[in-house]
Design a protein around this nucleic acid. Structure first.
Lengths: 155, 155
DNA sequence: TACTTTAACTTGGTCGGCCAAGTAATGGGT
DNA sequence: ACCCATTACTTGGCCGACCAAGTTAAAGTA
């Protein structure tokens, strides 16, 4: 969405900008992650596993906030790639325990390093105050969007 | 990505927040758009077509800033749905001219209305100054991410 | 004019992500 | 003990989005 485009008047400036920036960010993340063996999005899963150790899948789902089916598929691929292992939870036969394999843990430093570099690049040229401000504003927006799944759609 | 999660230390706070907010925003957009017959992402294409009239596909691609193949597939679906028509450009046999059909134009008001409502909801509780600030900060970030496709990846 | 580069898509493949619907096991209530 | 709601995933289907590679046509160059 090119903001300089004369045929693109400001239809929801914040929304547009948000979408664009997030896409660029994802592409940037993807470029660096792919070299490390991950696809964009998978880093969130791995980061949680690195921090939390073995967890129930439900715990992981709650942590990353994604759709359960998304996490399921992502884990299947990560398992296939050897970065993650799953086993049934003995205490609850419905549940799975998920854990990063040694091979998965081996990615940790590189990924967190890459992620830190990306953060630096993302926020380059912003003062500390600006970063906090941005974070605050984004958090407010997040709350706005989280609220109501509101039933007043359609028609 | 739950920021309150003890196992989720601030790894790239701005990056994480950005990703989360954008995802929530997209979901919100999707909910309202789906009722109108569009999938999230297609609204950008349609909005450009409404504003610009018949355009070359290359122009459209530049305007929305997406990958050409993404636009191709999106247009194929929009055409299938009857919202868009394409015809070869007589002046350049490689190119296509794209245009919203009457049926596509019929969506215009509802979609822009929905988009405006979403914008309002997104920025709810933010003062005018805060909105401008947010926009400014996002724009700075966008520039940061646009810059260098930098070759110093991997390893 | 012939040759090469560039532009404008398209196709195929893979992911992440969503929703809707389905299965299986746990837990709560009567 | 029985039944029903809840929880914990899974499957299937579809989209957006990417990349890589291919095709066709226009431009530039020798």
């Amino acid at each position: 969405m090119n903001p300089d485009d004369p045929a693109c008047p400001d239809v929801g400036p914040v929304s547009s900008s948000l979408a664009t920036v997030a896409r660029l960010h994802r592409i940037a993340a993807g470029k660096v992650l792919r070299c490390l063996g991950l696809y964009p999005g998978q880093e969130f899963v791995m980061m949680h596993l690195w921090e939390a150790g073995p967890v129930r899948q439900s715990e992981l789902i709650k942590a990353v906030g994604l759709d359960p089916s998304t996490v399921t598929k992502s884990l299947q691929r990560l398992e296939q790639a050897g970065y993650v292992s799953r086993r049934p939870d003995p205490a609850d036969r419905r549940a799975s325990l998920v854990e990063a394999t040694p091979q998965g843990c081996a990615l940790r430093e590189k990924v967190t390093g890459a992620w830190a570099a990306l953060e630096a690049r993302t926020a380059a040229g912003l003062s500390e105050a600006e970063r906090e401000s941005l974070l605050l504003l984004l958090t407010k927006v997040e709350r706005n969007l989280c609220a109501e799944a509101s039933a007043e759609e359609c028609e």
